[in-house]
Amino acid sequence: MIETVAVDRIGEMRCEVGESPVWHADENALYWTDIPGRALWRWHASTGRAEAWALPQMTGSIAILDDGDGGVALAMETGIYRVPRPEGGVALPEPTLIASVEHPRSDMRFNDGRCDRQGRFLAGTMVLDMSLAAPLGQLYRLDFEQSRVERLCDSLIVSNGLAFSPDGRTMYLSDSHPSRRMIWAFDYDIDEGVPHGRRLFVDMNEHPGRPDGAAVDAEGCYWICGNDAGLVHRFTPAGRLVRSIEVPVSKPAMCAFGGARLETLFVTSIRKEREPLSGAVFALNPGVAGLPEPRLRR
């Protein structure tokens, strides 16, 4: 049964493709990226102010660096980069390369990504033209010390839905392409940062929407945006659908927990013609708290 709850819009911005919301507790702020808009966004909860910085490449996902400075790691088109903490009214400096990537073909970029519970950054790739349905996407893990990325999974069309259980020992990954619409679970080696034992978690062909970006709550349940269905779903660790919450746009893109007690679920979205709120970012209270987002450790 679809639930209707109070959903607030934060800010007035409308992104082309709003993705990778990350709550920064020290700043009481939400960061996210607009992929084709080539922009990094930040919204301050205390003031309601939103600000954006131009980026030189499309950026599919971000992570806050555990560097004492509040810098940001950016999974872009040609690799993973870093920038210092953004300052209001000041343009970002040119991003510094952490590790480059060798895509199977040139028309690819990074997409969904996040840190595991130990602070390692993982991110997947995709071919820009989704209509090709090319299974060339890879899931990579950043090796910061060696300035390289290591391949963990392949044969993905649109890598998405990356999340980790509270103890970090289960990794979730989806493929949101219309021809796939699958979510998998893996056993995850928390010492080595390697997934194995891939198995079907949820066949989203049995539920409304394509499986886009995701988050895990404090009870271990998996929240994922049902793109094209205007819903955010909650699945138990056993893969059982227990809730579907309606949002005011058809294409929610990714969700993340934030706020002072991590009791707010933020949802980014994709702009669509004739949907006046599409591309906006929303906030709702799902009645359950989330988990702190790990920072990227060197």
Rank of each mutant, 00 (worst) to 15 (best):
D26F: 12
R105T: 12
D8N: 14
Y31R: 04
N285F: 04
A73D: 08
G89V: 07
M13E: 10
A54T: 14
F235A: 00
R38H: 03
I183Q: 04
A45Q: 01
S20A: 00
D212V: 10
G137R: 06
V267A: 05
W32A: 09
G79D: 04
V7T: 02
S155K: 12
E206M: 09
E145S: 01
A52F: 00
L231T: 04
V90I: 08
G89S: 05
S244Y: 14
G279C: 15
R180W: 00
L296P: 12
D129F: 12
W53M: 04
M254C: 11
L139S: 04
L200E: 06
L291I: 00
T236A: 04
C15Q: 00
M58H: 15
W53Q: 03
A134D: 11
S147L: 00
L200S: 15
R210P: 10
L200W: 11
C221I: 08
P195Y: 04
H177E: 08
W43V: 14
G197T: 08
D112M: 07
H24N: 04
L122Y: 07
F144Y: 07
E145Y: 02
E275I: 11
R105V: 13
H24L: 01
A214F: 06
A6I: 12
M13I: 10
R298D: 14
G68F: 06
G209Q: 00
L132H: 13
E19Q: 15
R198F: 09
S278G: 06
G197P: 09
E94C: 08
A218R: 05
G18Q: 06
S155E: 07
D69I: 05
D191P: 11
F186Y: 13
Y172Q: 00
D67A: 15
A133E: 05
A280K: 03
G113R: 13
Q138I: 13
V72P: 01
L231K: 13
E77K: 08
R38D: 03
L40W: 13
A63F: 15
A215P: 02
I245L: 07
W43N: 06
R9I: 03
E102P: 08
E16L: 12
T33Q: 15
M108P: 03
M58V: 15
A39M: 09
E102Q: 08
W184M: 14
L136F: 09
A99E: 06
H44L: 12
V90M: 12
P248Y: 03
R169W: 11
Y31W: 07
L173K: 07
P21M: 01
M130C: 12
G70H: 08
D154P: 03
L162H: 11
P248H: 01
P178H: 08
L122R: 13
E246L: 09
A45D: 02
